[in-house]
Design a protein around this nucleic acid. Structure first.
Lengths: 237, 237
DNA sequence: AGGAAAATAGAACGTTTGTTCACTTTTTGT
DNA sequence: ACAAAAAGTGAACAAACGTTCTATTTTCCT
């Protein structure tokens, strides 16, 4: 699978995302007309990610947000009750989308090696398509209230366990070598996260997400695939 | 090398660290007697790392810092001119210590495979000994002013280039396979960072830094060492 | 076109923040 | 023991913040 194929397959249109937010947070949002609500929700979320990912959510002021969106302070508070609630909304939305797509990808394959490859690729493609969201979620966990913080950490552990289960299954089937499952899945997660946390670095060096995915899959398979081809791994692409 | 050996070898005594800070920031610090200066500097730095690493430097107030250190607001400002300068001081100190130790470790070995192993181990052991510092530096880059931010990023790229150069050298000597140098050194960095960013996760699972170091070295060597032993990698330790 | 409903604007308010400074307490040198 | 120097205190201040609210503009429906 390539990133281009993934983009076509995954239903990730912006319109739908904001429609889902509007539907879910209906009671909290004091705007009646869907058309203006969607337009402003997109403005607000986009600006929040842009400003926060530059200087941090805590350092972003409501006046920053007002200026960037072109909306007045009063209007902003028609979409959330407080700045903290805005933080929760961004967090929740990203998590629910990411969870859905990852679950679908893991269910599509059966054979352990293929499943492992699919989850790695899908995670990378997803974080590529939603980079600001992933970066935000990663950097702002500390500023969440306890309930939302717990949910975020649980989601991260869930995706790591998804990897661990696949590896364990492969070991039981004899296709993966008996490496330390917990450490290997943690290492895979670390590399997955690096793609969206250090996105700028990879862009500057001219790497595409497809190249990174190929490299990661090669690295992981060469480490734990039993009887992996001993030919030297290829460069980049 | 083990972490215990590293701890004994590296000169990392707290007294010396704060003496260096006091010596370097002499003109900015309005306290004449070295003894009280060192005592309070340690209180301030320790408290800054503790509070900031829980809720972020920006969210830490001077009153938080005053309460945690037991020093009054007025006294705090005898050690730095502003909150931003405190941020810079913490950042600079950690960077200079880390840079010195890494440089020494890289110079000690000659053969590429041994050097690579030494740099990985030293980086891990160092971040283990100074975990709060590393975590702080990683999470608060965004809140630095431009000059200090540039220096921090440069230091990170320097350590990545240190890895890349060792790998390139090993490839030229024929001991490393022709893998993508830039991607491999980036992946190594990602795993090194995961150790101190997710320190709590690994602690909860009962892993020591020595186990993590062995795993990482095994993973990397199995990926790029030409003619690496095909025996299945051992579990954990 | 005109009036009701929805959306928008931004001045104003109370809090919290970083920072200062006149003052008190402690330590030092003789 | 005592003055001078150093260290420490916390009330006070201005700026900046999140949030509210009334007044105004725009949109919608008939």
């Amino acid at each position: 699978m390539t990133f281009a194929q993934f983009s076509r397959a995954a239903a990730l249109s912006r319109r739908e995302i904001y429609r889902a937010i509007y539907a879910e947070h209906g009671p909290s949002i004091k705007v009646k007309k869907e058309k203006t609500a969607l337009k402003n929700l997109e403005l607000i979320f986009e600006a929040t990610l842009k400003i926060s990912n530059r200087k941090g959510f805590r350092a972003m002021t409501m006046r920053d947000l007002s200026q960037e969106t072109g909306l007045s302070l009063g209007v902003l508070y028609h979409y959330f009750a407080s700045k903290d609630e805005l933080l929760d909304m961004v967090q929740r939305t990203g998590r629910s989308i990411a969870g859905r797509i990852l679950r679908e990808a893991a269910a599509r394959e059966n054979e352990p090696a293929a499943r492992l490859r699919a989850v790695i690729q899908t995670h990378l493609f997803l974080s590529e398509a939603m980079q600001p969201w992933f970066y935000f979620s990663y950097m702002e966990v500390r500023h969440l209230g306890d309930p939302e913080k717990d949910r975020t950490k649980a989601a991260e552990l869930w995706s790591e366990k998804l990897l661990a289960d696949i590896i364990s299954e492969g070991q039981a089937a004899g296709v993966f070598a008996p490496v330390d499952v917990s450490l290997l899945s943690a290492a895979i997660k670390a590399m997955l996260q690096d793609w969206y946390v250090k996105r700028g670095k990879y862009a500057k060096r001219g790497y595409t997400v497809d190249q990174y995915a190929n490299f990661m899959v090669g690295l992981v398979e060469r480490f734990c695939l039993v009887g992996s081809k001993q030919a030297a791994p290829r460069q980049g692409s």
